[in-house]
Each structure stands twice: as C-alpha cells, then as structure tokens.
Design a protein around this nucleic acid. Structure first.
Length: 543
RNA sequence: GCGGGCGUAGUUCAAUGGUAGAACGGCAGUCUUCCAAACUGCACACGAGGGUUCGAUUCCCUUCGCCCGCUCCA
C-alpha cells in the first residue's frame, strides 16, 4: 500500500531531517500548516552558522558594506512603490474545464487554450468567480480592522534597505560604491509550496543591495568604464568599474562563498536571464542554482538546478521609485563628479547629459502614474540630467539576494551520503554520513570517554568537554559503545570526535594527556595533546 | 486553485469490522580497551472531525498534511 517512491533520495533526506532534528513540520501536533517549517536543534545550529558566515563575509570582513535590521511590517506605501501591491492583486478566474487560470480583466482577449477560435470569456468551460490573488500576507495595524489599517508582511527584505538608504548613508560614513546588507524573514503566500522547505510561505533571506555610480558618472570622472574581458578576474574592486564589472564581481564573490561552505562548482548551476525574462528596469540577472535531488532535467537532459540566489543589476529603479512615491530625494551628491564635470569638453558633457537624460526618461515613462503627462516626464528627465552636471545622481544597485532556507536544504542534500560496511560475518549495514563542511556543521566536536564504567575516563572526558564548549558547539556522549557514538555523530555531520582512552590517563606515560581525534569523512584518527586540541579544532572550523 | 496518489510508534514497515505488531532508533541499567557488539527493562502510533455500525485504525463523507502533475513563481 506504500506509495510509489517518486524521489527516494529526497524522501530519505526528509526522513533524516525529522529523525535527527534538522527540520520539523510547523504545528505538527495540529496536523501541520502548508508551507511552514521549523528547524530542530541541529537545523537551528546549521542555519545560525550559515547566517553568521554570510554576515561576516558580507559585512564585517569588508569596509564597504554596512548592516541593517529592519521591521517585517512597514508602511504599506513601500509596497506600492516597489510594485508588489499592483502585481500581486490581479483578480484571477479559473476554468474548471480546461484547468487554465486567467486574469479576469483579460478573458475577452486571451484565446481559450482548448478552442483558440474563441476567447476565454466566450468558451463553454465552467468558470469560477473572479478571485483576488494577492501573494502578500495581509494584516491590520492597530485594533480597528478597516482598509485604512491594512499592512503587509514584507515579501522581501530588500525594500527596507532602499527605504533606509539615506539614513544608512548618513550614519555609516560610507559613500558610493557601498552596500547595505540584511538578513531576515520574508513572507509570500505562495500558490503552491513545494519541495520540502525549498518553496515556503515564511522564509529567510540574506540580501545585499550594493549601490554603485551610474556608468555616465564613471565615465565623467574616469574617462572610460572598465569593461569585463574574458580573461579579467575582477577580483578586487576598482573605482572605474561600471555596473557590468560589479555585477560580474558579485556573482564571483557569491560563488566563492558557496565553495567556501562546501558547495563545489560542479554542484552549482547558472542561469543568465534572457532579455525577455528580465524585469523592464533590470539590466542583467544571474541566478546561482543548486542541483537538488528534485531538480528537473532540461531539454538536453542536463540537470541545471534550482535557484539559491539571484544577482540582479537593477539600475536605479528602486531608489527612483521611492523618491517618486515618498517625495524624498534619494540621490547622492558627489564632489568628485562635480569637479570632473567642469573639466569635461562640451561634446563629452552633452553626450553624457543626453545618455543620462534618455535613461531617466525611459524609466519615468515606463513607471509613469496615469496622471503624468509626457511633458512632465520630459521636464523631470531634464532636471535629473541637469543634476548630473552639479554632481547629483541616483545610485544604481547590484542585488545579490539569497534564500537561507534553500541554502540549508542544499547543504543538507549536498552533505548526505551513505556508507555501506560489511562486517566479518558478511552482514552489511548502511549508515548515513552528513559531510558538512566544518564551518557550517551544527556540532563541531563530540567528546567521549572510551568506556562509561571507568570513572577516571568519564571525569577526564568531561573535563575536555568543559574545556572546548565555551569556544565551539560540542557534545558529550557516553551512551552505548564507542562505535555507536561515532555513528550518531556521523548522522549529525559532526566533523571531529575526540576520545579519551587509557593512554590519556598515562597507561603509556609518553601519551599522557593526549587524545584521539577521529575524522568523520575517512574515519582516520590522529593523536593530539589536549593542550593543542582547541587550536586544532578552531583552525579547521575557521580555516 | 485543479487533477491523481498517500496518511499506523521518532524512522522504515506489518496486520485487522472485535481493544494494533516488528525492526531500527530513544531512555535506563549490566557489560564493553576505538567505528551502530550483546543482554535486561521502559516509553512511544492508527493525522483531525463527522457518519454508517452493537462495535471503525479498517467502510463512507469532510477537513488537514505529504508526494506527483498542471498552474503560479515579483
């Protein structure tokens, strides 16, 4: 009666997550709630490690990124400016006959999929009533639940960064180019949560908005914009980088991050969005994919993977939107630009002015509110271009936006491996080893006495455990046999296990105060002095 | 949201219109001088609600959840 195994590996991973305490279904005792997942003891450690590594990599180890922690509920105008209210609230009609779903305002234009000679509104399929599809979670601020109190749980963390751009700029002593990073929860009322935690309704994002000068500004100051050549590595940022170089740089930075936590390039995939896929304001978007067990094959039979992170070049769209909707200036003043502009030959000034004008006019036209006339738009674009000559511009942005939960799932899938051992009697047994990179492993070290019923061993093992635990996540285990404890830690993905034996106590005097340290992935042991233990572990975990 | 499949200990699986079993795992203990040893004991399940029935985990309905396909994917 068992259901057919559609994806045995994925099912084993889900089962392990429950069994060992990586991931539980939310509200499980009440039957669960679709699209929501909890992290158990091991998952919580794993997730914390990943977020901390991202934060350290993206902010603390860089001079040019500042952090932010904004609220989940913000002024609803934010989501009007970002476009989320408009794009999320189209009334939709389902056809029960052909299973199609159509925008209610387009049923008299779209041809029926089954009878293309007729439009959806005319065909005989049985239709549902028009229903509003808003993928943002709604709530009310304050006790009165009327329309004026409607607010939304943020569908992405990014907008808070744009909304607080000027405050961060003024308080962080940063200047463009610089970034603002944030880690936090976001909520989307997904139509179909799928693939375990991959698409959840409540999830966590790690987002960087990296603000850069428009190419026209780079050109005004440095004469030319540095162009990416096939061989250029673009490893360290240069003042004359334009958006392409920065975009390429951040893709590489992010790939290096994934490699640094154990996801090799072979496990990753890339998708460069085509012009048709790109939002109208975006210039490029590169998705970094991971080849999940549930990832599908493309037309050529290759697994490309599913999205972990998108690195988008979003032009100056976001800050421009918030400038228009809030009425507050979102531009920056650049002394260098003003000084450089004055020294430019007239033709160059005119050329840059025209290009900036065209860009602004294009944006303003596409984002125009219904009551804005072409004349007003031209006037605003002229004003914007004139600002350039005075050293003013709206920064462009490169947005590396990663999903924490997707990354956790990728790390779990990547770590999962099975080892089959056959004993002397020919009995074989398969065990699971979670090969997490030591940097992300939920537990860094297990400490065991070789035998439980020898008080000297137990006391010494507990002393070693107390020595390590202030510095890293350690566990003490004296249950069962030593082999069982190793196996337990293998399933948790603990990279190192330390065992206190009789030599530690001085049975061989030359080995007094040494312990065995056992490596998860090959089972090999080495002997270390207790005094060297902490440094050894820290070097493996931080190195 | 539509269609299909499926819900039994923590996990993997049995059985049954008449009070649910196993293995592994967990906990406690004995033992054990390095890779899930052995032994003893303990705890733990029919997703929820309603209906049919003398009696439902089993049959029916609803609901919730999981998987697959469609749809959606800012």
């Amino acid at each position: 009666m068992a259901e057919p195994k559609q994806n045995p590996l994925m099912e084993k991973i889900v089962s392990l997550c429950k069994r060992r305490g990586f991931v539980f279904q939310s509200s499980e005792i009440y039957g669960g709630i679709n699209g929501f997942w909890d992290y158990g003891p091991l998952g919580a450690e794993l997730k914390r490690n990943v977020k901390e590594l991202w934060w350290n990599t993206m902010t603390r180890s860089r001079d040019d990124v500042a952090g932010l922690e904004a609220t989940i509920i913000m002024a609803p105008e934010i989501w009007k400016a970002s476009g989320h209210v408009a794009t999320f609230s189209d009334p939709m009609i389902d056809c029960k006959t052909c299973k199609g779903r159509f925008r209610a305002d387009q049923i008299s234009e779209i041809p029926c999929p089954q009878k293309p000679s007729k439009c959806v509104g005319e065909c005989h399929g049985e239709k549902t009533e028009a229903r509003a599809f808003n993928l943002m979670f709604q709530t009310y601020v304050g006790p009165v639940q009327d329309d004026s109190a409607i607010a939304y749980l943020r569908p992405e963390t990014a907008q808070a960064i744009f909304a607080q751009f000027k405050n961060v700029l003024e308080t962080s002593r940063q200047k463009v180019p610089f970034g603002i990073a944030q880690v936090g929860k976001a909520f989307r009322n997904e139509v179909t949560p799928r693939n375990f935690t991959f698409r959840s309704r409540e999830f966590e994002q790690m987002e960087l908005e990296f603000f850069i000068k428009p190419d026209e500004v780079i050109e005004a100051i440095y004469g030319t914009v540095a162009v990416r050549t096939p061989n250029s590595q673009l490893l360290s940022p240069q003042p004359n980088w334009g958006w392409q170089a920065w975009h390429h740089y951040w893709v590489e930075e992010r790939v290096r991050f994934y490699e640094g936590i154990g996801l090799s390039r072979e496990t990753l995939g890339f998708h460069h969005q085509t012009p048709a896929e790109l939002a109208h304001y975006a210039r490029a978007c590169t998705d970094i994919l991971f080849k999940f067990p549930f990832s599908k094959k493309d037309a050529d039979g290759n697994v490309t993977g599913d999205e972990l992170e998108g690195i988008a070049a979003r032009s100056d769209f976001d800050l421009s939107q918030h400038q228009r909707f809030s009425g507050k200036p979102m531009g920056v003043f650049d002394e260098e630009l003003r000084a450089a502009w004055a020294k430019l030959p007239k033709e160059k000034q005119d050329d840059l002015w025209k290009r900036y004008y065209d860009h602004r006019k294009n944006y303003l036209t596409k984002s125009a509110k219904p009551d804005e006339t072409p004349e007003q738009i031209s006037l605003q674009a002229t004003e914007d271009a004139n600002g350039l000559a005075k050293g003013q511009y709206i920064p462009h942005v490169i947005e590396p936006s990663a999903g924490v939960d997707r990354l956790i799932l990728a790390l779990i899938a990547n770590a999962y491996s099975e080892v089959t051992k056959t004993d002397d009697k020919g009995k074989s047994e398969t065990t699971v080893v979670m090969k997490f990179h030591p940097r992300v492993a939920p537990i860094k070290v297990g400490v065991f006495p070789l035998l439980k019923n020898k008080p000297e061993l137990v006391a010494k093992a507990q002393a070693v455990y107390e020595l390590l635990r202030p510095h890293l996540k350690a566990v003490y285990d004296d249950g069962g046999s030593i082999g069982k404890r190793y196996a337990r830690q293998d399933e948790a993905g603990t990279p190192f296990c330390v065992t206190i034996d009789f030599d530690t106590l001085g049975e061989k005097p030359e080995l007094l105060d040494t312990v065995t340290i056992r490596h998860r992935d090959d089972g090999k042991q080495e002997r270390l002095n207790i005094s060297e233990l902490l440094d050894f572990l820290l070097s493996k975990i931080r190195g």
